[in-house]
Amino acid sequence: MYDLTEGAVLVVAQGVRDTVDSLDSATETTLRTFADAVAGLRGSGLPADKVQQVHEDLIDALVKARDARKSVLKAARCMAAILHRSTQRELDVGCPIPWAKITFAPSNNSTASSEDAT
């Protein structure tokens, strides 16, 4: 069993929610920038390869934001599995927004499955 403090669990849970929200905000802003760039560059007379590079760079930024969000959620699942094997009492720490809250309860199971960490 792992010894986790309630304070640490609550801080980490809020950090996950804040990080996911920040990544969603970045994705939204990048999508708007992409749309603005497409609209602004249409009919500009710029060479097609220059416009293509702008498109590819913004798509790359979106892919990186998606991948970062996916990694944060994967880490959150791993941390939840750790929490299940801790001495911490049951806490209603919630889930990354906008999903409904969930409750984590310590497990009597001392072995972790690979599914718990993914």
Results as ranks from 00 to 15, higher is better:
Y2M: 04
D3A: 05
V9Y: 07
V11S: 03
A13I: 02
V16Q: 01
D18R: 05
D18A: 12
T19W: 04
T19P: 04
T19M: 14
V20P: 05
L23D: 05
L23G: 08
D24A: 14
D24L: 10
S25Y: 06
S25G: 15
T27E: 09
T30Y: 03
L31C: 07
F34W: 06
D36R: 12
G40F: 11
G40K: 08
G40R: 08
L41H: 01
R42T: 15
R42M: 12
S44A: 10
G45S: 07
G45N: 04
G45T: 05
G45H: 01
A48Y: 03
D49I: 12
D49F: 13
K50I: 15
K50F: 12
V51L: 09
V51T: 14
V51Y: 06
Q53R: 14
V54I: 14
E56T: 13
D57I: 06
I59H: 07
L62E: 07
L62N: 02
V63L: 11
K64H: 11
K64V: 09
R66A: 14
R66S: 13
R69V: 08
S71K: 00
V72K: 01
A76D: 12
C78V: 11
C78E: 12
A81V: 04
A81D: 03
A81Q: 04
L83P: 00
L83N: 01
H84G: 08
R85S: 07
S86W: 05
Q88A: 14
G94S: 14
C95N: 13
I97M: 09
K101H: 15
T103Y: 04
F104P: 01
F104S: 04
A105T: 11
P106M: 06
P106N: 05
N108T: 09
N109P: 01
S110W: 01
T111R: 03
A112M: 14
